[in-house]
Structures are given as structure tokens and as C-alpha cells.
Design a protein around this nucleic acid. Sequence first.
DNA 1: CCTACCGATCGGTAGG
DNA 2: CCTACCGATCGGTAGG
Lengths: 227, 227
Amino acid sequence: MVQTTLHATAPRRGRPRKSAEERDESRRRADLVRAAARLFRKQGFDGTSTRDIATAADMQSGSPFYYFDSKSAILAAVMQSGMADATARQAKALQALDDDASPREQLRALIRQHLQVCLGKGSDFIPVMLYEWHTLSPAQRGAIASQKDAYEAAWMPVLHGLHQAGSLRADPQVARLFVFGALNWTVQWFRPGGPLTLDGLTEQAMQLFVGEASDRKGPRARATSKT
Amino acid sequence: MVQTTLHATAPRRGRPRKSAEERDESRRRADLVRAAARLFRKQGFDGTSTRDIATAADMQSGSPFYYFDSKSAILAAVMQSGMADATARQAKALQALDDDASPREQLRALIRQHLQVCLGKGSDFIPVMLYEWHTLSPAQRGAIASQKDAYEAAWMPVLHGLHQAGSLRADPQVARLFVFGALNWTVQWFRPGGPLTLDGLTEQAMQLFVGEASDRKGPRARATSKT
DNA sequence: CCTACCGATCGGTAGG
DNA sequence: CCTACCGATCGGTAGG
């Protein structure tokens, strides 16, 4: 409104310039999502009131509804942000590998990255998604499903490669579901600071799922490095 | 009341005979627990009101509190019943094996039994436990922990055996946590009636965790039999 | 964004 | 076990 005074009121069609107000609004929105994620993770969705969220974001009780239509829309936003972040990290983790990286090395990278995101170092988004997926309505789940599908699809070429090489006996599709379960479940029991590091955990998962089959040079020693 | 008329009303000290009233009470209690489990599984703990539970058990709104101190005490009862049942089934599954059953066969029996319980055919108790474990207070969790520990401990000799035989590369303790995660997570995605049966699922899990290492005679074909 | 508020629901209890 | 009820909380909204 303040911005458009110069050009009369003709609403410029097309992508509107990002005004300072708009930047502020999306920043406040992100604040809400981040605050909600932290509370949802700690207390659960039902254990967190919209008033809790408002307080954590320095707002009054009714204000979250200026940014979101409903409490569950906030939850959906948490999960969408989480998936966007996880997908970006996944792509980065794969790109960081050598071009001739073996399926085994690719799997290790995927597992390590996935564990990192599940354990929620730095972001509560994915832990919330793992705990509260069933809380969303089917329609809301559908909206996130495409992100989820893309994330999961990235594992399939790697698992197929390992299957053909004989390192993975189970059907790759079913294997993916079991592997995700094993990794996602760490949220329930893994506590950082214990004897097991992220790299140690990754190495254990590798041994469980694809044994130590062929290459015996080195990788075992790498178990506790790097974190 | 009807029963005791013959012997006047002198209340026999010591272990009271299990009167019809008492039997009735514990039956109604069990009804409540069963009804609550079904609702908790379908709608979640927070999504279920004590009024819902009362109605499902053919009672009025306040009556569940005659049997339980609080709503969460009902949840704890659900989990205790679930663990008692699961432990009994586990013992039976192991006893049904030949005395000279290999660790691999024992693992198969444990996995199959665990999947059966997780998928909640006939009882909603364990699915509720998997979903709502975090809902209990630490004190309530502690009360169930010993049952849980015993159930989990039964896997360790088997996993150690496989580790020593070289079929399981990962550390048995960590392997157990990963395996439980993979199996427990099936609650999130497995729907009976699909292409995968309980036995098929069990076989896939076996292949993923302990490969097909030594014995190559038969077991693969067994994948879809029996259910 | 805040203020003030509504309607509904909920866990739990007293008293029989 | 039922009846009747309380106090608290909660998601959401109107109106600015």
C-alpha cells in the first residue's frame, strides 16, 4: 500500500516486488514455524497450544492466525520446510562424492545424511515429521507426499546397484522401507553424547544392511572420525 | 451379593474369594482397556476423550474413573497388557522350534512373531504402544520398562550367535535397535491385503539383516507360504 | 498484528 | 457404576 502510491493504484500484474513489509512478514512466518517445531518436538502437537507458539514467537495469543489458517497448517508448514531442507542436504551429500563413487559409498552418504536430519541437530523439523505424520489430514499429507516421494526415490538407484552387486539380498523396495524404519527409529533411542557418534552409527548401519562384503581396506577405522 | 447370602455377611479375612462381583469388575476393566486401545490406535491418545472410551464400553461419561485414576492410567494399562501378551507369544514362538534350531531359525521366529504383534492383528495394544510411548510420564514408562527389557533381552543370545557365526556384522546391541526400528516402523506403512504377506515380510527382513549366507536350500521359496 | 471474546470440549469429581 | 457439574483450556474469530 505504501509502496504503490507512486504509480497510482494500478496493481502491477505478475511477480510483485518483494517489499520490506513482505520480507518482514515471511520472516515472522518463519519464526513461527521454527518456534512451533521446537515445541511440537518437545511436547507433541496436541501438547502444544497455539498460545504456546505465539508466546515463543513473541506474539499475542491470536496472532498466529494472522499467518496461518489453523494450527494444523502450522504443522504442515513445519513438515514442508523440513522436507525442503532434507532434500537439499541429500542432494549436496551425493554431489560431494567422487563421480566414480561406488553404490556402497553412496549408501553410506545417504545413511549418514538421513541420520543427521532425523536426529535433528540444528532443526526440529524432521523429528516432528516422524512423530506427527499421522496427525495431518490425508489432504495435508498429500501436499507433502511429492517431496517425500522425491526424497525416497533418490535411494532406489543406489539400492538397485547394491542388489545387482549381490551386497543387498532383499528386494530394494522393501529394503528401503526397512532401512528407513531402522534409521527413523533412532529418534526414539539415540541420544548424542553417548558412546555412539553419528559416524559410528552410520558404520553400524552399513554393516547391518550390506555387510562388509568386498572391500576390507579401511572403512571400519573411519567409524568414529569426522564428528 | 447374590453369592454370599448363604454365609451371612462375615467378611472372610485373607485372600478374598474371587466373587462374582470381582470377576465382573475385572471384566469391565478389561473391556475398557480393549475399547481404549482400539480408539487410541485409530485416533491417537489426545484425539480420544474419556467420554469416547466410556461410550465404546457402554458406560456413562464419568464411569471410567471408577476403574482408573486418570486417562493416562488407561493408556498405561493398554501398554502393560500389550507387553504381557507379546512376551507370552514370544516365548511360545521360541518353544515351538526344534531344540536344535539354528540362530537363524530362531531369528526368523522372533521377527515373524514381532511383526505379527506390531501389525496388531487381533490386538491394538502394541501399535498403541509404538505410537504413544512418548505420551507416558517417565514414571509410567518406568513401570513398563521391565517388561520391555525382558522382551528385548530374548533377542540378544540369538543376535550374539549370528554375530559369532559371521552372519551379522554389526554390533549385536546396535543391531537389535536397528532391527526393532525396521520392524516397528512397518506399522507406518504396511497394509495387509497388499502383495506382501506376513511371511513374505519376514523373509525380506531375514535377507536384509542376515543375508542368505550359508544354507541355500529352500527358504527363499517359503517366502509367500503359510499366510 | 493486538484485544477481547465465544463456544466447545475435556479431564476429573462429589455424592449418591 | 450414574448424574450433574466444575474449572480450565483451547482453537479460532471479529473488529480494529
